[in-house]
Amino acid sequence: MEFLHWLQDSGLATWVRESDALGSTFPYTFLLALHAIGLAMLVGPNVAVDLRILGYGRSVPLGSMEGFFRQMWVGFWFNALSGLVLLPTSAVTFLTDPIFYVKLGSIALAVVTLQMIYGEVFRGRSGRGDTPPTTKAKILAGTSLVLWVVAIVSGRLMAYNGDVRRSTLNAFLLLLLLLLVGGVGWRAIARGPGWGVSLRRSM
């Protein structure tokens, strides 16, 4: 705890937090922006790879998507480094907050999952043509999607207190449930036999 206070009051943390360079609290907002840009560079392509493994966009040769791993790693290092400099600015709040550990844990697991996907689907496959993804690859892809959702949700919730966290989480889970029910219902109408077909014909 003493160490956390020392860290938070250190010259670097104070400068990052309080400097007003360029009239826009430059170091702090710059790092926050970098953190959001890195998030997009990493999570967007990772979601695309997951979706491809799960059967979406089959016309894209899966093996060729190996090229996007570079984009993902750039995003990862953007965020690892900006996060490392941002952490001391609120060391006490962050490192005593369970949600912070949920965020870091889910990110660590998501990156390990991405590496396992690389090993299962991509490593040593170039030029050998596409084989359909294994069940293991599909499970990893699904896990990856869930872990990134957990990472983004917990990252955002770090800015709020207990009551807001609970009600936000409830609202988010309700929204997911509605989307899930809506999605399943839509597929049943679009593909299913019986009343779905007659409904589609009548539209």
């Binding site: 959001a36 840009i37 560079m41 967007g44 090229g67 984009q71 990134w148 955002r156």
Partner: peptide, 29 residues
């Protein structure tokens, strides 16, 4: 939460397309 999830999907996936045209991941049709 929705804004951040949305920006990851939007900028991440548009970024894939842009980077492919710029010469990264050229193996992708």
């Amino acid at each position: 939460i929705l804004h951040f999830a949305g920006l990851a999907l939007l900028v991440g996936i548009v970024g894939m397309f842009d980077l492919r045209l710029l010469g990264m991941a050229k193996a992708v049709p």
